[in-house]
Write a protein that binds this DNA or RNA. Structure first.
Lengths: 218, 218
DNA sequence: CTCGCAATTATGCAAGTGTATAATAGTGCC
DNA sequence: GGCACTATTATACACTTGCATAATTGCGAG
């Protein structure tokens, strides 16, 4: 008779676990920041999008500030998780290729993701806790890339000094970041696959190893 | 007896030309957006920083929206003007070198500039007029870079197809943008000149022309 | 010198902001 | 099946926001 999936007629609300509610609030916050900027992410809008009333936010987060921090952490973790899985297996060259390629396609390249990044930047520059998260994510990406580069070079019979490897990683990371940024900020300016292609060509040139997606994959 | 530079005792305010007031308001707006994000740039704060009362904003701009648009346009023009002058004269290779180098040093690389870029992004994505300005500036940079690249290649005895030249310009622009972004977002993560050096190395590798600042300059 | 115009200030307002507190009502436990 | 615990809602408050309108006042034209 009563279907738990349906908003029951008489029931005014349903209780949910803390995790479910926290995540719903965080996702609503990310949605709104991506869409309207930090300015548009008001407690009332967030609550509405999470299908609760605004008082509930204060029940799960001691302030809106804390909610925004949690949302930022969640977003950054999602990003790193998404790319961590992208390398896949296979030769070092293949893993580097896949990593660059995946970083320059949806869902990583995405208007909302760039908007989110931009929306958070001001808070990042002022809040030490968010600064830490930012730095961590950046280092994670760059170190991951550096390992892939070093392995690929070794595989092709070359080796580089640690300092040089780091410079290569910074440079490749910058190309990827720049293309990621432009792809997200000007979504119509690039055709599908163009960013990934340019990214692979650039990394190839910088590192000195030919990378080719079609041949490597599958 | 009366010094015009001093806030006169009895005088409650001084009249200024429209250009002076408009520019003062625009600069105050840019300051605040860079510092506290669009959210912190309230009409009251802007007016205070420009040493006027808030009513004056509505006297020079029909709305805050219009002021923000004017500020964005001003900022973008400043950026392009700054870099336009950076190439200088000399050989094509030297001009390309100077352009890349200047784009990756202060005042172009600068926390406030990146913060400004991020602060405006949301508005850019929703306001068609700001989108136009954004697209224009991006194209200006990329086209400028493309011309420099083509000239440098010709100078070293090579030529490229138009489509390839464009790809190279996108790639080089991305490296520069990425390094610019990271230098502004993580000012302490890079030593002086490091970004410029990495940028030159990367562009060298991508385009296939050795670029060296020390030798070229002077 | 003074007078009128427009630049500038002063004041007010309605809507929206985050937060605090009290009132309500689901739901697991005995 | 009733009860207590607390997740959730409802309401209120002080403050900020952008904007409008009226009151001043600097300053150039005559």
């Amino acid at each position: 008779m009563d279907d738990p999936d349906v908003q029951d007629d008489s029931r005014k609300f349903t209780r949910e676990s803390a995790e479910v509610r926290r995540e719903a609030l965080i996702l609503a916050t990310l949605d709104l920041i991506a869409e309207m900027g930090v300015r548009g992410a008001t407690v009332r809008e967030i609550a509405a999008r999470a299908n609760v009333t605004q008082g509930l936010i204060r029940h799960y987060f001691s302030s809106k500030e804390e909610l925004v921090q949690a949302a930022y952490e969640h977003h950054m973790n999602t990003l790193t998780d998404q790319t961590a899985a992208s390398s896949g297996q296979g030769s070092a060259v293949s893993r580097l290729t896949n990593f660059v390629d995946a970083s320059l396609r949806p869902p990583i390249v995405n208007t909302s993701a760039v908007a989110l990044w931009a929306g958070f930047l001001n808070k990042v520059q002022h809040d030490p806790k968010m600064q830490r998260i930012h730095q961590q994510t950046y280092n994670y990406f760059r170190d991951h890339l550096e390992k892939l580069i070093v392995a690929a070079l070794q595989e092709t019979g070359r080796s580089v000094a640690a300092s040089e490897a780091k410079q290569l990683a910074i440079a490749c990371n910058a190309v990827i970041d720049g293309l990621w940024l432009e792809g997200g900020a000007l979504p119509d300016a690039f055709s599908e696959g163009q960013l990934a292609q340019i990214g692979l060509d650039s990394v190839s040139a910088i590192v000195g190893i030919p990378l080719n997606k079609e041949v490597e994959q599958q």
